[in-house]
């Protein structure tokens, strides 16, 4: 297993499969139990270092670490060096001095977790919990985990990802991970929201959502900030939602068994209608539950390596 999880592209097929299988194990060991705690990471310290607000991701990591019996510290460093607060380096040195074993970092600057892991400031394992418009690897893992539970092996499956790819760390991580797992990804967005050079990504692209939906095994809608129209990425929220939003009419174009995913938080009425979000084929709430299992797996695999503690099986 890799030492830091910075990009979904760092995971080999074996690594990714190991994480997903371990997450299955975590689910099996805790689902339906009154006491959901495993003693696996007892005595280990996990710091949630959040330079950017994200209640859902932070809570998910916090729950995951606590269920593994790790000591969890929430370090919300609002305001990075960008806003004249403490620098990333000084924060890192502080965490190192406190003896953090794992640092889960969320940052508005792309590459900040990479800097943290490679600058020699800390020895802890670094898990990227979302950096700028770069990546969000545990989100991709939980998405893959959710899809795998419903669709089985993802090799050859058709996954459609729709929305603001340009600014989406979720899209980047999903494309990389799904390519590793052998799925066939199509990104759908207005041309303004597809990054320059996307023809080199391991996926297909389309500007036409209706076209892309017909063969889909799963459709993932990305959050689109309506402020984007101020920078002329699209003319209006209404036009965006007409051309790229998922509504009941479009859902009817999908195969009946196809899943609907969304990383949250949703803009209901913008990229997805309430009707679709709450439909039987929506696994959006399940993604949140699975997020905890996947993050348990990641923390376990990264932090328990040097530990002599029991395996989850033994502990259970």
């Amino acid at each position: 297993m890799i030492r830091h999880l910075l990009s979904a592209g760092d995971l080999s097929l074996d690594d990714a499969t190991l994480v997903l299988d371990t997450a299955d194990e975590m689910a099996r060991l805790t689902e339906g139990r009154a006491v959901k705690k495993l003693p696996t990471l007892r005595g280990r310290t996990v710091v949630n270092l959040f330079f950017e607000d994200s209640t859902r991701t932070r809570t998910s990591f916090e729950l995951a670490a606590k269920r593994l019996s790790a000591d969890v510290v929430n370090f919300s460093a609002k305001g990075s060096s960008l806003s004249k607060g403490e620098s990333l380096k000084d924060t890192a040195l502080t965490l190192e001095a406190m003896g953090a074993d794992g640092v889960v970092v969320r940052h508005s600057a792309s590459g900040a977790p990479y800097r943290l892991a490679t600058s020699g400031w800390i020895n802890a394992c670094v898990v990227n919990a979302g950096d700028g418009t770069h990546e969000h690897p545990t989100q991709a893992l939980l998405d893959a985990f959710t899809m795998r539970r419903h669709l089985g092996d993802l090799a050859g499956k058709q996954i459609v990802i729709v929305g603001d790819v340009l600014h989406s760390r979720v899209a980047r991580s999903n494309v990389l991970l799904l390519a590793t797992l052998g799925a066939e990804v199509t990104l759908v967005a207005p041309p303004t929201l597809l990054p320059n050079g996307i023809e080199h990504w391991p996926c297909a692209t389309s500007y036409d959502l209706d076209d892309a939906l017909s063969g889909a095994d799963a459709v993932m809608m990305l959050r689109v900030q309506s402020e984007r129209m101020n920078a002329a990425f699209f003319p209006s929220a209404r036009e965006y939602s007409r051309r790229y939003g998922l509504d009941a009419r479009r859902q009817a174009l999908m195969p009946p068994e196809a899943l609907v995913l969304h990383p949250g938080p949703m803009n209901r009425g913008m990229e997805i209608t309430a009707e679709v979000a709450d439909s039987a084929r929506s696994v959006i709430v399940e993604q949140v539950t699975n997020g905890v299992y996947v993050r348990m797996a990641v923390l376990y695999l990264m932090l328990a390596g040097t530990n002599t503690g029991p395996t989850p099986e033994e502990a259970a």
Binding site: S110, T133, H134, N196, G197, W201
Partner: peptide, 13 residues
Amino acid sequence: NEGELSGRLGLRG
């Protein structure tokens, strides 16, 4: 520089 790498790294091109 805006190009394949800026898109991949998530850095504004």
